[in-house]
Design a protein around this nucleic acid. Structure first.
Lengths: 130, 130
DNA sequence: ACGGGCACTAACTTTCATGTGAGTACCTTA
DNA sequence: TAAGGTACTCACATGAAAGTTAGTGCCCGT
């Protein structure tokens, strides 16, 4: 799990060929998807929903600092991308539940370790600007 | 208010407690780190370097569409974050090699599957905008 | 009856990431 | 002599992302 290595021998892992060919060219769809997923609020919403279905107002409170506009926009994008499912119940007061689709869970499974890593290393990185 | 996912196959995976507490608050360092890492060009550079040491001009050609300014800026940020190592040789013509630090390799190990996923699912996602 | 919560939308503004184009200083090859 | 490669920096422009403010219609508690 650890890359045990001296600095000058850290391992170069060659990328899968199709990835190397596909991601680097400008204008490939993966860049768009990556942009949605890695947007400032996209990550947070995906992460929050990975814990299970949640309501609009729950998400609003959870992703501290998000505006209603950005919440709506982010959810719409993720829904269009087939990562989030929207379930609006015709009750009063309105109740809308958001959850991840299967594809969304696939993604969040990859996102969680990344965010965990960022969280664990954040202090070191921000402090140690050497 | 524990909620359970209602989907047939997708499961709600609770986040580690410290992560849940740490990432959502506004202004936490992990957001900054995540921003650097998931910036438009940050991902590409990290990915390119995960294959091994590369020169400035190699990177420029590799990350198709990047401007010199953005390449310099991105590399500087990643270097300050301790993810990229810069090795300038005092030769003429100038030769500067960039490579990942151990921490950089740790990150790229998490980044690669994410990008691979994005690449594999990109077409489906972009096409299926119903 | 008044403020508040709910789930939004629309219009407008600001901020910031990114793009553009130029310049630097040296050397090699044609 | 000129063109081109190497690794940059700087000033300025632009455009997309994000923030701000307001408004909608309904209901519930006090």
């Amino acid at each position: 799990m650890k890359v045990s290595a001296r600095s000058d021998t850290a391992q170069a892992a060659p990328l899968p060929v199709d990835l190397a060919d596909g991601v680097f060219p400008a204008g490939c769809p993966s860049r768009t998807v990556l942009d949605h997923v890695t947007s400032k609020w996209g990550v947070l919403i995906l992460l929050a929903l990975s814990e299970g279905e949640q309501r609009w107002s729950d998400l609003r409170r959870r992703a501290e600092g998000i505006s209603e506009k950005m919440l709506a926009q982010t959810l719409k994008t993720l829904e269009r991308d087939g990562l989030v499912r929207r379930d609006a119940q015709p009750v009063i007061p309105p109740r809308v539940d958001y959850s991840l689709t299967d594809r969304g869970y696939e993604l969040s499974a990859l996102l969680v370790p990344l965010v965990a890593w960022a969280f664990e290393n954040a202090e070191d990185i921000v402090n140690g600007q050497r």
